[in-house]
């Protein structure tokens, strides 16, 4: 019946924040669940690129991310979309400032 949910500690180094993300939950959703705003939230589907982060250490599994925002080279450097990665250990990350389509009317 009862299932032990592993929680991974996510340290957001350049925001001086940390939170616990249950395993099986996307990192960005884990952050939203505890009402933190340290990473920008957009589509939550790997399409818009606003949730870009760099994983400094730790392990995770991931789902497909838009090539428009994450190149193979980015992946090598640990640059990923927070809505598409699922922590499998504690993580140290940094938030990358992503200039989203800055538009004329704002």
């Amino acid at each position: 019946m009862s299932q032990i949910i592993t929680k991974h500690k996510i340290q957001v180094l350049n925001q001086e924040q940390e939170f616990l993300c249950p395993s099986g939950i996307a990192l960005l959703v884990g952050m939203e669940t505890i009402n933190s705003h340290c990473i920008d939230v957009g589509c939550r589907g790997g399409g818009c690129g606003v949730c870009k982060i760099r994983v400094i250490n730790g392990s995770f599994s991931s789902k497909r991310m838009s090539k428009a925002h994450i190149t193979d080279e980015d992946l090598q450097k640990g640059v990923v979309l927070a809505c598409r990665i699922f922590p499998t250990s504690d993580l140290k990350i940094e938030v990358l400032h992503t200039p989203t389509s800055k538009q004329v009317i704002v």
């Binding site: 939230v41 957009g42 589509c43 818009c48 989203t100 538009q103 009317i105 704002v106």
Partner: peptide, 11 residues
Amino acid sequence: VLNERFLTVLT
């Protein structure tokens, strides 16, 4: 009020 996400999140 404007919502930043509505204006800037695109694919």
